[in-house]
Write a protein that binds this DNA or RNA. Structure first.
Lengths: 168, 168
DNA sequence: ATAAAATATATAGATATCTATGTAAATAAT
DNA sequence: ATTATTTACATAGATATCTATATATTTTAT
């Protein structure tokens, strides 16, 4: 919800204020976690990579295929001009190439380069403290059930945001 | 983590790609949920309120007290100049006042006005579809256990981000 | 009492995002 | 076939955020 991303500086340790329905408290926690996890993550990124840039690099590396700007925008839930901008930065760093499709002159395929793959590898390495951190939490946290619940919640929201079951 | 806020447009319904450790998948879900929940939330905000502005208004209304710019910045986990900017907008709309403290000339107290309170009330009303939506989800979602797990996760991250137990 | 350090806020500049719109190419309609 | 519509990407302008720094005030040290 963003608006409720409110740390309690009062006495207890709940997020959100008393009057919030529990769903709002959950959303407040989720906002705060997203924000802090992003902070932790970005601190570890090398070579002036932004998290948006690494996201694209990582996706192209793992899928092992090129994708169009629009496909990437959908995949990362950002506006198309936002993804155009991110890809532009990656092109400037020579981590990806953009080439007009041979079969459709409107489309541009984004493909990762060798330099990009190498950078992605280095970055994954430098993220190792993250793995350690999350493993350390596994004592106290049940990741699997949490994932299931969050997945359910996400699907509800996707329907809400993108209309009737836009999720494949 | 932001960088992994990646919708699968492939066949399954998991977030994140196969190779991710489960903690990364959880973080990916959390990012996506935060993003979509914010979208849903902002669509409902009236009077050109941003979620940041409503957050401050709502907090001041519920706490029933004035707070300083720095206190608000800490509460919402944003940089101090960011909160200065948000408060400035609220002052322009005459929803809050800023007054230099009588006991400390550096400090400015932010207090909600009657106009601000009224606006907050209207906004809470216009958010009613949100309550309905979250209630509708309660069939399939266990809000309470989820809240507990997320709370634990948040505390881990607070320690990580702000150093040893900055959380009161 | 004066000078130095710390604190609260504001300002400046940079960046990432958004919406609206422009441009070029492909598809559909006539 | 031509024209209109749709689609994919780029550009422009607005906004919210951040970091770095300036300014004013208070507190601390000498």
């Amino acid at each position: 919800m963003a608006s409720n991303k409110e740390r309690r500086i009062e006495s207890t340790s709940d997020a959100g204020l008393e009057a919030d329905p529990i769903a709002f408290k959950v959303m407040t926690e989720i906002d705060m976690i997203a924000s802090m996890a992003t902070t932790v993550f970005e601190r570890l990124l090398p070579e002036n990579l932004t998290s948006a840039q690494f996201g694209v690099l990582n996706r192209l590396a793992r899928l092992g295929m090129k994708e169009t700007v629009s496909e990437l925008a959908v995949a990362f839930m950002v506006a198309q001009p936002t993804m155009s901008s991110t890809v532009k930065k990656l092109v400037a760093k020579r981590f990806v190439t953009m080439r007009v499709s041979k079969t459709d002159g409107r489309v541009k395929h984004v493909a990762i380069t060798k330099r990009g793959l190498a950078c992605r590898e280095r970055t994954v390495q430098s993220l190792s403290p993250l793995y350690a951190m999350y493993e350390a939490m596994a004592d106290k946290l049940e990741w699997a059930p949490m994932l299931m619940q969050l997945n359910t919640l996400r699907h509800y929201l996707e329907t809400e945001v993108y209309g009737q079951d836009s999720a494949e």
